[in-house]
């Protein structure tokens, strides 16, 4: 994979704009589930952790990767499940 910094920065900028557009429309009622849900999404670092833990490049990176996978998965699974629990409670009369 070639390093294309400008390409990555383009993606960054566009994603930030999309994020701002969408999130400003989230009603205050849903701010807590929004936080816990977006929190879970920040566990996406698990993707990098999987490669670090599985690449077999020495004990230290494997250990770091394994800890990172564990922490990220607590964040991912926990975040999505608490969000689901909360969102399931919101109902209209």
């Amino acid at each position: 994979m070639e390093t294309d910094l400008v390409g990555l920065l383009t993606i960054l900028m566009l994603a930030i704009f999309v994020g701002f557009e969408i999130i400003t429309k989230v009603p205050p009622t849903l701010h807590t589930p929004l936080m816990s849900g977006s929190n879970a999404i920040s566990g996406i670092a698990v993707v990098g952790a999987l490669v670090a833990a599985g690449a077999d490049k020495g004990a230290f990176p494997t250990a770091l990767g394994t800890i990172a996978i564990t922490l990220a998965m607590v964040n991912v699974v926990g975040g999505f499940v608490v969000s689901h629990r909360m969102l399931a409670m919101f109902r209209k009369k």
Binding site: S36, A45, A49, G58, F60, L64, A68, N75, V82
Partner: peptide, 21 residues
């Protein structure tokens, strides 16, 4: 929410450290 948040941050810097190594 606070604790999950912290774990996400930790995972990120551990991955960066592993990749650097």
């Amino acid at each position: 929410v606070a604790i999950f948040n912290g774990l996400g941050g930790a995972a990120s810097f551990l991955v960066a450290g592993a990749e650097l190594t």
